[in-house]
Amino acid sequence: MSVSPQPAMPKSWRVESKPHKFCPGCGHGLVLKCLGEAIDELGIQDRVVFGCDIGCSLLSWDFFNCDSVQTHHGRTTPVMTGIKRANPDLICIAYMGDGGGYAIGIGGIVNAAARNEKVTVLLANNTVYAMTGGQMSPCTMPGQKVETAPYGRDPEATGMPTQGPEMISAITGDGAYVARGTTANMRQLKGYIKKALQTQMEGKGFSFVEALAACPTNWRTNAEKTWAFVEKEMPQYYKVGEKKNPFEEKKEAQQNG
């Protein structure tokens, strides 16, 4: 009997582009594993259009056996919106980091959310601009030392970190799905991503999942400290959970009725 040394890859992953190009310990691979499994379980590989941003997420342009488009920094949401509007049968997924999503791309996300566009945004929050070498991002934690805040982020000077799901749940209409998951709880994260995709498949509204993810390269942390930051420190400010869930609303309505 032979035992594979590797855990099984999601079926929708493209074997030819593996091993992937992310750094050892990077959170992107985990988020994309959850996404791959969600695509497999929903059986939508033939309908998915995967759009990736610029930043480390750009490395996922040939990650899936799905049609994929690498866009510009902060512009993935509008490109996916344009595709979805042109062909509503496709399942459009915009994948990005916290810099691309919450800084340069926030205008696109806020307006797509406000219009309740039937697209899914999946955002990996690792608290830094990683591809460019670890500058401060909208999600850098107070006191966290990064290249452009070498003495630690000072909220007095730079504000508090952006809380994306909280903001987006406030501006989306009925039917939207908004959640924050974490790579420290893969089963839960996959469930959130699946519900986000179902929201799009059923035409309910905008769907958004933030995933807390690690960047040991730029955090300059060993395995233990990396994991402690993701599992313990980040969730103190970034509360994990569902912020808006059209499936729950339905259940509640049924219960109340």
Binding site: R75, P78, G82, A86, G107
Partner: peptide, 23 residues
């Protein structure tokens, strides 16, 4: 069809999306 976007960046990038979808 028509979509009014939030700025010209999005107008341009959604047009790019429309073309990618084959319209």
């Amino acid at each position: 069809k028509f979509l009014q976007t939030e700025d010209e960046l999005s107008a341009g990038f959604t047009t790019v999306g429309g073309v990618l979808a084959g319209l």
